[in-house]
Simulated scan of single mutants.
Amino acid sequence: MKLSVILAPYDSGHYQSGFGQGPDALVTGGLIEALTLAGHDVSVEDIGKVGGDQPREIATGFAVCRAVSAMVDAALEDGRFPVVLAGNCLTTIGAVAGERADSVIWFDQHGDINTPETSAHGFLDGMALATVLGLCWKPIAHTVPGFKTIDPARCLLVDARDLDEDERKLLDTLPVLRASCANAAEQAGKLQGMGAVRTHLHIDLDVIDPDLLQVNRYTTPGGPGPDELGRIVCAIARSMPVTGVTLSAYDPAFDPQGDVPPVAGHLLTDLLAALERI
């Protein structure tokens, strides 16, 4: 398969800091070699510095999304499947826009569905899925080329085990599908019943059980093991029209032994193999 691996090395508006070091660490940890050895034709692109010399979280975060959207669109024009390696989950807005996705499957231990009105901490990344679904940041989100909000009924949120009370209340009012990893593949099939034909797969690596693999500092107990996560995303890939993938939220400072990159490489190679069998 022809692939475009797009690096978006930002964390809260800061270039190659914190989670923003994750994309490069995945690459230097052997991800590209794993994909190449699996027979893929891999092109690697970095969005570089965006947003000006004075980083501002909101402005820079959406500038990252605009850059990613353009690169994803170009990859698809070149017949390449886009894989975005992101520091922040907000970057998925750019991937969704570039793919013209009409549905999303969101693997994350967090809901990412706060809004400015409900967020206790003002953390932009905690509003990523809410923005994708058109619940907040509407004017600036629509500066991202190709962005259209996704109907909440075409969203599957998987294993969001760390929700605050406002997120729970909001989710109770929305037709967002919810699933544990164990029944995610079954629930994903319902998206097609809602007319989904272009599905973006978002995988925040902190969905994995931190007792088995520590990917960042914001982890809570529970979640699937790496092998279980791999089985589930492969089952989804074999049954759904997946148009692109984002991997996010890896902070190499919390992985001193470099355990995460090989797991990410294995996850992606298995996922792509499943897509090729369709």
Score class of each variant (00 low, 15 high):
114 N>H: 04
248 S>D: 04
105 I>F: 14
238 R>F: 11
207 V>N: 08
151 D>P: 12
92 T>F: 14
215 V>M: 07
265 G>R: 06
179 A>C: 05
104 V>A: 08
161 R>P: 05
134 G>V: 05
257 Q>F: 10
141 A>I: 00
126 G>L: 02
154 R>H: 10
114 N>T: 04
235 A>L: 02
109 Q>Y: 09
196 A>R: 11
30 G>P: 01
197 V>Q: 14
189 G>Y: 07
162 D>F: 13
259 D>E: 14
149 T>H: 11
243 T>R: 10
190 K>Q: 15
176 V>H: 00
4 S>C: 11
113 I>Q: 00
21 Q>Y: 11
117 E>F: 02
225 G>T: 09
61 G>V: 15
61 G>T: 13
53 D>W: 13
278 I>V: 14
105 I>R: 13
73 D>Y: 13
53 D>R: 15
48 G>E: 14
112 D>Q: 07
147 F>G: 13
266 H>L: 08
134 G>S: 06
138 K>I: 04
129 L>W: 06
45 E>Y: 06
252 P>G: 10
84 V>E: 02
275 L>R: 05
144 V>G: 04
138 K>L: 13
137 W>E: 06
99 E>G: 07
228 E>F: 11
177 L>C: 00
210 P>A: 03
236 I>T: 00
98 G>K: 10
106 W>T: 08
147 F>L: 14
51 G>C: 14
115 T>G: 03
138 K>M: 11
209 D>T: 14
252 P>H: 01
143 T>D: 02
182 A>E: 11
146 G>K: 02
78 D>F: 01
220 T>F: 14
51 G>K: 15
235 A>T: 06
54 Q>C: 10
78 D>S: 15
238 R>S: 14
83 V>I: 12
206 D>E: 08
186 E>S: 13
99 E>C: 15
204 D>M: 05
124 L>Y: 10
98 G>A: 10
69 S>K: 08
42 V>W: 00
70 A>M: 04
207 V>P: 03
272 L>H: 01
219 T>F: 01
191 L>A: 01
84 V>L: 11
79 G>H: 06
244 G>F: 07
212 L>S: 08
23 P>V: 05
10 Y>R: 07
64 V>A: 03
242 V>A: 08
174 L>D: 03
236 I>L: 02
83 V>T: 06
76 L>F: 00
172 D>H: 15
87 G>C: 09
278 I>M: 07
10 Y>L: 08
41 D>C: 12
162 D>P: 09
203 I>P: 13
205 L>H: 09
132 V>E: 05
112 D>T: 06
188 A>M: 12
80 R>D: 13
166 D>N: 08
53 D>V: 13
28 T>K: 12
241 P>F: 00
41 D>Y: 09
240 M>Y: 01
17 S>F: 11
276 E>K: 15
33 E>I: 15
88 N>K: 03
131 T>E: 06
25 A>E: 07
44 V>L: 09
260 V>H: 10
121 H>Y: 14
95 A>K: 01
263 V>S: 08
191 L>I: 09
41 D>Q: 14
69 S>C: 12
94 G>H: 01
63 A>N: 10
177 L>N: 00
261 P>E: 00
66 R>W: 01
17 S>D: 13
41 D>R: 15
247 L>H: 11
173 T>G: 01
158 V>G: 05
215 V>H: 07
68 V>Q: 04
114 N>D: 06
241 P>E: 03
163 L>A: 13
34 A>M: 09
72 V>N: 08
277 R>T: 09
86 A>F: 10
112 D>K: 02
